[in-house]
């Protein structure tokens, strides 16, 4: 009887230990995955601003424009105009690529994985139950957790710092001081297998220039890729 009792005790302790261990593994796994997602998104969106393309010269005449579909067609008054403009664009593009590599930005990161900014949203992803589940999981998140910038690994030659309103705005209404981009991330909602995820992201270049969206991601070949987004706002 005593032996059986002991056996039960050992089994019970093992069970508890295993549960705790798997919880920790699960949490730390989610934690690691969250930072991997952030690394990818920062690389994707925190690119330096570069000069815009020059306006098309008057020698170009539009035949048809559909801005939303990014479609427009037209004709040049002479072939040489077209070649000159194309060469100009190519030259600017190359110059911008070189410029972009040499620009080191300061990216301010909101110090928390925040509660997703979805309180007043009511989206319906009827054609994708998976997205709907992730969206609802996001909406259910009620607390924020600290975000450690030392765990972020970005590929560009930028610096990371924590975002602080007091430090980075010279007064209310004024723009950022000492930072080029402010990035905020919500906590990440995962599916059970940690193969799909969703989070709310916002990137701002100023207090009135940024965007926010829900990002739906999937792990493919051990890398997180964006499979869809649902825009929330621009500013």
């Amino acid at each position: 009887m005593t032996v059986i009792k002991k056996l039960y005790t050992v089994l019970f302790i093992c069970l508890i230990s295993f549960s705790i261990h798997s919880c920790i593994v699960q949490d730390s796994e989610a934690d690691t995955e969250s930072y991997e997602i952030l690394n990818m998104l920062i690389d994707k969106h925190a690119k330096p601003l570069l000069p815009p393309p020059p306006p098309l010269p008057n020698t170009f005449t539009y035949d048809s424009v559909n801005i939303k579909e990014n479609y427009y067609s037209g004709h040049w008054s002479s072939k040489s105009d077209s070649i000159i403009y194309s060469n100009k664009l190519d030259s600017i593009k190359k110059k911008n690529e070189i410029l972009s590599k040499n620009i080191a930005q300061i990216i301010a990161i909101d110090p928390y994985f925040a509660v997703p900014w979805l309180a007043d949203s009511n989206f319906n992803f009827a054609n994708s139950p998976e997205k709907q589940r992730l969206y609802e999981a996001l909406k259910a998140i009620q607390d924020s957790i600290p975000l450690r910038i030392d765990r972020l690994k970005i590929t560009r030659n930028d610096s990371l710092t924590y975002w602080s309103k007091a430090q980075h705005r010279r007064r209310k209404g004024a723009d950022y001081v000492g930072v080029d981009i402010v990035a905020s991330f919500s906590r990440v909602a995962f599916d059970e297998k940690k193969q799909k995820a969703a989070l709310v992201v916002s990137f701002n270049r100023s207090v009135l220039a940024g965007f926010s969206a829900i990002y739906f991601l999937e792990k493919k070949d051990d890398k997180w890729v964006v499979i869809d987004t649902k825009g929330l706002w621009i500013s």
């Binding site: 309180a119 007043d120 309103k165 207090v207 649902k230 706002w233 621009i234």
Partner: peptide
Amino acid sequence: FGECSDGDDACTSAA
């Protein structure tokens, strides 16, 4: 009045 993100003063939602 609404919530954008911490770094914003205002935003336009065309969701």
